[in-house]
Design a protein around this nucleic acid. Sequence first.
DNA 1: AAATGGTTTAACCAATTGGTCAAAATTAAA
DNA 2: TTTAATTTTGACCAATTGGTTAAACCATTT
Lengths: 203, 203
Amino acid sequence: MTKIELTTEENILEAAKKVFHKKGFDGARMQEIADEAGINKSLLHYYFRSKEKLFEAIFQDAFKQFLPKIGEALISNKSLFEIITLFVNAYIEMLIKNPYLPVFVVNEINRNPDKIIDIIKNSGVNPIKLESIILSEIEKGTIININPKHLIINILSMCVFPILTRPIITGFLFNNDTALVQEFIEERKSQVTSFVINSIKLK
Amino acid sequence: MTKIELTTEENILEAAKKVFHKKGFDGARMQEIADEAGINKSLLHYYFRSKEKLFEAIFQDAFKQFLPKIGEALISNKSLFEIITLFVNAYIEMLIKNPYLPVFVVNEINRNPDKIIDIIKNSGVNPIKLESIILSEIEKGTIININPKHLIINILSMCVFPILTRPIITGFLFNNDTALVQEFIEERKSQVTSFVINSIKLK
DNA sequence: AAATGGTTTAACCAATTGGTCAAAATTAAA
DNA sequence: TTTAATTTTGACCAATTGGTTAAACCATTT
């Protein structure tokens, strides 16, 4: 119904995203991207000089999306437990909508670790704010004494890992019943939240 | 000192493992594997018919290593907390020694999800035993009521994820100070253990 | 020493791949 | 309409890649 007209460049980016996310840099073929976009292969080189340049555009975008954004939640003076609840729900929701994103980022990050340093500096996300919030919460005595970095990684781990290993989980824990897996992933929003809070709250 | 003589086949497997783990199937080059093994490229095809066959050998091995083995700990009648402690320590230790293993497995699993079904069936690992132990522990009243599958995934998540995203963690949380990251990974043995137990133990 | 069977090599091949280039098609400007 | 600029295409290329093959090498047996 709502037929959106895409410019050729947007069209290419959309197609490149699809192919790169699914096949990675080495596995992706310029011809396949062109086919996906319904254009001639030469056009890819007309808009983006090379495969690397095109990939760079896709990767930068994916990487920024992969980095957790919690700015809004931090500004409003919510409690740490509220922040955790909101973040876990929003992040898992985003991952469900972009199931190929984590594999893509993790894979390319490890394939080419050097390149990310620049991207990181450009990404304007700083985890230090969150760290200080956690620390102040410890001092206030609302949560146990825990290294903020470990806590942050713990939360991220439990959100992202199931998406990364979905095929294994499907085959292993759920006998290839994909519907059950989907349900399982949905459940994790509440499960991860309560698991974390349960672990750090002082009683 | 202890100079070990490797057969050509073992030599090839060793080289293939190194290259495949670092570059993945698409990124790996048969010539590079041959160079790494110090032999002619044709020898690869002499011992293994094709790139796919050679890859299969490497992948099967990696996949089995990636799957958590907890058989011994389960047979001896240890408590759940002891099992968790032992497992987390052993698994993270293994991951430290094989830093490329998780990326490799996760990447190829997602690139070719269909193939793993056979491998899973051949791998002879069943998580059901662990699930029943967790369930009985819940009935005994030593831990809170929690879905065993979620608990298992939580533990695995927190062990594997930091290894998978090491380059991001290095750049982001530790300003590229690799020594600090190494320390951080080591710390996770105790951190993950206590985080989990803290979350599920009934007081 | 000659024959035999497994191992290793160098040269080569067909197919694929990222990329180029000049011409055609389309759009905008005059 | 004509001209100029931009966009799109098809044909083509050089380099790479997985794989083949016949010959050389080597150890063992006869």
